[in-house]
Amino acid sequence: MNNGTKIVTIPETATIEDIKDEIRDVKTFYMSLDNKELDKNFKIKSGQFIMCTIFGAGEFAVSLPPSPENDRFHLTVRKVGSVTDALHELKAGDKVGIRGPFGNGFPFEEIKGKNIIYVAGGIGLIPLRSSIVHVLQHKKEFGRVLVLHGARTPDDLMYKENLKEWQSFPGFETYITVDVGTPGWTGEVGFVHTLFDKANLPVENTVAFVCGPPVMFNTVIGELLKRGLRDDCIISTLERHMKCGVGKCQHCAIGRTLVCTDGPVYTYRQIKTLGEQI
């Protein structure tokens, strides 16, 4: 459970402190809440999200990439439409509004002692980053930890500094691939699931986290099941159009579930029974 403050209805303001370019159209915004008391009590869980207001433009749902422990608060956002465009116009010192954190979040205590596989396609690495860093901070309590990241081109690889750090972190097995190489690229080329053999994927006592675009998602899940992973050991987060974040507007309904309050994290076993396209 989340024991920190939850901002439910009226946003609290936060000030952008730094902005970092990640890849084309994707930036990371470091920020902190203006109310310092609140900032201190703002506890998040990996896999949760917040609703972020861009003043004058509107509100949108966004994942929380920082680890719940000792990590700087930030959001990583791709510019795709009116509100996210407006965010990309902002500079350090500008203010945004925040409500949340909302949603169930990824399991952490429950998966201690297990092997963990992270499979991230493109910006699917954004929602997984929090869990990856959290597990890294507690590596001793986990089995093998594999991070598999695929992007369209080398320029589209997310969180490049983190990837470098994870590649050399003791006990972390990090694999990277791109759909199409560019001159000078010496790494793997191919879709992310083509890394599975090379990585000698564990199956027993293993949990896999999968995030990425629908096509990648379906192929990866199929491949994992074929290798013998149980459908309740495959975990993902779903994305839906969201207007309230607290189970009221009903925009995020899929079959019998509301992604904002029941999700956004689901096991593949649950996803299969939602009774609607995902």
Partner: peptide
């Protein structure tokens, strides 16, 4: 009871 939420401008810097 489904609803939508929109921010509409009421002035240059107000919504």
């Amino acid at each position: 009871s489904c609803f939508n939420v929109v921010d509409t401008a009421t002035g240059d810097c107000s919504c």
